Simulated assay, not measured.
Amino acid sequence: MRAVRVHEYGQRPVVESVPDPVVSGPWDVLVEINAAGVCRTDLHIVEGQWKDKSGVELPYVIGHENAGTVREVGSAVSNTAPGDRVILHPLVTCGLCRACRSGDDVHCESSTFPGINADGGMAELMLTNARAVVRLDGGLEPADVAALADAGLTAYHAVRKAVPLLHAGSHVVLIGAGGLGHIGLQSLLAMTPAEITVIDRSQEALDLASRLGAHHVLRADGSQVATALEITGGRGAHVVLDFVGEGGTEAEGLALTRQAGSYFVIGYGGRVEIPTIDVISREINVIGNLVGSYNDLDELMALTARGEVSLRTRTYSLDEALDALADLDAGRIPGGRAILVP
């Protein structure tokens, strides 16, 4: 099969032929990949940011946002069959540890994460297990939902955690309305009554946010913090969702969080720095967000099937994978996601 593999950190991946994965265990599911999302995490992997955390042996296949058609299943699999169209939860989990049994399978004690620490889905085929498979509603196409497997799941997971904090009359500031942020915005609109202010440096992304239903949109031109504070009556937001997490948005997000409010870190690459006395005196919460559970993905697919969440995408062939990565890195895909269609 053809696949996109990292051979050396700091160097461009290679599109090449590799052996097909093979079903060998009773819970294995072999999926023909019809669509694979291109994520900023893929750029961070290539740069080497995940080298020490993943411990993966190079070369390996990247790609952790995957959807396609089941080709073959192991002897114990009963929840899916060859021919089913599916989206894949990004982790392959055990189902036996305490985290899995409590529905927090993203923290499975013995999981693998295809595309991060094992071969992923920027390929024609990918091996996963039965616990990762979410069958698609008949009206959904793999290319339309693939990026929801991580970008959408991460955004939904953060919003779902914020829902109890966002009562009628509350305010949320969303920083970054791109590939993750525009999904987070749609999730907020579907699940909360909050007033929403969106901040982005891209006018195209802000225009999309306005069309989707954001109540206020602000260009990140240096005046955004002052203007957002003015919109919130000088108090800041009950919840700040930072889908960027680098380049100064960390400090801006904390500045926009009101007393006893919550700053959700979703994007990454920077550093959150705040004196402990400020954490105590302002009684604010800094909340991390890592992907999401299988149930989160199942719920997100239900919202998507109802038309309440949709992706803006640009498709590339598998052989154009390096172009897709370059376009993402250069900011040429504002307000949407790049999707490889093998």
Rank of each mutant, 00 (worst) to 15 (best):
R2M: 14
V14G: 10
V22F: 09
I33Q: 00
A36T: 03
V38E: 01
D42Y: 07
I45Q: 11
E47P: 06
E65R: 05
G74E: 11
A81I: 09
H89N: 10
L96Y: 13
C97Q: 07
E109S: 12
I116S: 05
M122F: 14
E124H: 14
N129H: 10
D137W: 09
A147Q: 02
A147S: 15
Y156K: 02
V159Q: 07
V159R: 03
K161R: 15
P164K: 04
G181N: 06
H182N: 13
S187M: 01
L188G: 04
M191H: 10
I196R: 02
T197C: 13
D200A: 06
R201M: 11
L208C: 01
G213P: 13
A228V: 12
E230I: 06
G234N: 11
G236F: 12
A237V: 01
L241V: 03
E246K: 15
T257N: 10
R258E: 15
Q259N: 13
G261A: 09
G267Q: 11
I274T: 06
T276W: 07
I280V: 14
S281H: 11
V286P: 12
G288W: 13
N289I: 13
T304S: 08
S310R: 15
D329H: 14
G335H: 07
G335S: 07
R337Y: 09
P342F: 11
